[in-house]
Design a protein around this nucleic acid. Sequence first.
DNA 1: ACAAACTTTCATTTTTTTTTGAAAGTTTAA
DNA 2: TTAAACTTTCAAAAAAAAATGAAAGTTTGT
Lengths: 167, 167
Amino acid sequence: MEFKEAKNKFVQTWGALGSQWGINKTMAQIHALLMVSHEPISMEDIMEELQISRGNASMNLRALMDWGIVYKEYKAGERKEFFTAEKDLDELAVKISRERSKREIKPALKVLKEVSAIESDGTAAEKHFVDQTSKLYDFVLKADNVLDKITEYKDNWLAKLVVKIMK
Amino acid sequence: MEFKEAKNKFVQTWGALGSQWGINKTMAQIHALLMVSHEPISMEDIMEELQISRGNASMNLRALMDWGIVYKEYKAGERKEFFTAEKDLDELAVKISRERSKREIKPALKVLKEVSAIESDGTAAEKHFVDQTSKLYDFVLKADNVLDKITEYKDNWLAKLVVKIMK
DNA sequence: ACAAACTTTCATTTTTTTTTGAAAGTTTAA
DNA sequence: TTAAACTTTCAAAAAAAAATGAAAGTTTGT
């Protein structure tokens, strides 16, 4: 396999993986492309390489920047904007975790708290509902916190995590 | 808030969360419904409660059973099939992790290994590509393993995890 | 073997999501 | 201030994903 083929395969795979995780294909592909590029790329080049429209490129680049995992760069003397991806993988994981937690987990937790707080009459159905949603709340809260801790201490996270939780 | 309203809110929220994680809305909703139900539910009742067609119900129930998080049950004397969800949350997490790892992470790892193995000529571009995809391979492999370990020891996973990894 | 009581399948339709591209907007340099 | 060189926006189109429902398939009891 040669370079171009490998790069293409990587971009395609990363794109497919993205869609399975609720991220749109183009967004994941642009990110993939930027990750393996050793120098900043212009919108023009992204469009060219991925065969996508200007609008598509613009919107997905904005989304990636909102996630904090792609940056704009300006080259001296050039009018055009260039883009780079966060390449430190720990940093990338931290940012993605934080963002997904904020956007998805936190709101879900709020709802779980609400619905588990209903006044149950005594029926088995209602008792089970309250019980199950309460457990779910605790579980999701704990999982979210663990993720937070893991990503908080990127380096050596395991050891520090243990200290923090065990004490 | 009363029971019916709370249940509905939970089912809707779980469904929305599902779509953000690459699981289709109905599948997540059926799962939600079964999770908070204290007794097995028939396909008929699922269709009724979620206002979906027979085909849709059937296909999504099959998918949930393929994931191993919903079970068929037979009630004595009844011809109809009933369904229950895995309600133990640790067990649920284990099954979802395993399945996603098998279906998505493992194939991605295979590709990462492949593309990071190209013979780099000396150019910066190719060197960077090999370097970055190798790092990515290591990172994803490690993350996948940690998840595996966490879910392997549902109870007390943290302590055992430390022992296993630290030694 | 038959038929009633169910479930599954899959071509078609519907809905949702993504992409396009042209117009509007912005920035810079002269 | 103007115009060239860009980027963003967003209504419309296209593509992808999900849902429908009727026909085909299966199972069970008699």
